[in-house]
């Protein structure tokens, strides 16, 4: 089907539509928004995209996205290198960092085990995690993968492969959101929180 737009506009819409969550209508809207802005705004956006994609790589230690290698967290000598918190995605690391409570290091798996999507341990950064632990100096590995089926399976898998090493392996607790009323919590969360109770 031929596009009713001039070729450069059609191409822009086409590219935008490849982004997640962007359909034909949103693509059009974004394209016209960009065309109505000043040329330097467009250039600055284009440059930002180029810079990010060209300068960002993965940290050779923790596998997080970074513009330096090793990344800022892995270089930070004030952080406790004997504790590694394992997360699925860079955004999980960011969430953990926002708490300001954690002062150890990280390991980003870049996904979770999901045979339906063809993702197994080999597709994740598990080998890198094992060689870090094998390298010594690690006391505890915290498994902070999601609580869904894939995250849970990944955690169980890691617990198994980490068993031969002399490290303690822990799983983050799941339960009630802080400040939430008990009678307002959904029953699944409540049931799980009850299972994970501990003595006070």
């Amino acid at each position: 089907m031929s596009s009713p737009y001039a070729l450069p506009i059609a191409r822009l819409i086409d590219e935008l539509c490849k982004l997640p969550g962007v359909g034909p209508k949103t693509g059009q809207r974004l394209a016209f928004h960009l065309l109505h802005r000043r040329p330097e705004d467009a250039r600055s956006l284009a440059q930002a995209i180029l810079d990010a994609t060209e300068q960002i790589g993965t940290c050779s230690v923790c596998q997080n996205l970074t513009d330096t290698d090793p990344c800022a967290i892995c270089r930070d000598s004030a952080r406790d290198g004997s504790v590694i918190c394992v997360v699925e995605e860079p955004r999980d690391l960011a969430a953990m960092e926002r708490t300001g409570e954690y002062r150890g290091r990280y390991h980003v798996l870049q996904g979770a085990i999901s045979p339906m999507d063809g993702v197994g341990p080999e597709e994740l950064r598990i080998r890198e995690l094992l060689s870090r632990v094998q390298g010594g100096g690690v006391r505890e590995v915290i498994l902070a993968t999601n609580t869904d089926v894939e995250g849970e399976t990944t955690a169980m898998y890691l617990a198994r492969v980490l068993k031969p090493f002399q490290v303690s392996v822990t799983r983050i607790a799941r339960g009630l959101p802080v400040g939430g009323d008990l009678d307002y919590a959904d029953q699944v969360t409540l049931a799980r929180a009850l299972e994970g109770r501990r003595e006070v």
Binding site: I113, S114, P115, M116, G118, G120, P121, V149, E150, T153, T154, M156, Y157, A159, R160, V161
Partner: peptide, 23 residues
């Protein structure tokens, strides 16, 4: 669903059996 997908992968020798136990 994940386990059935995994069984097929293992059968085609694309996956070690160790993942199965975790799942």
């Amino acid at each position: 669903l994940q386990r059935n997908a995994l069984l097929k992968e293992i059968r085609q020798h694309r996956r070690p059996v160790s993942v199965l136990a975790a799942l």
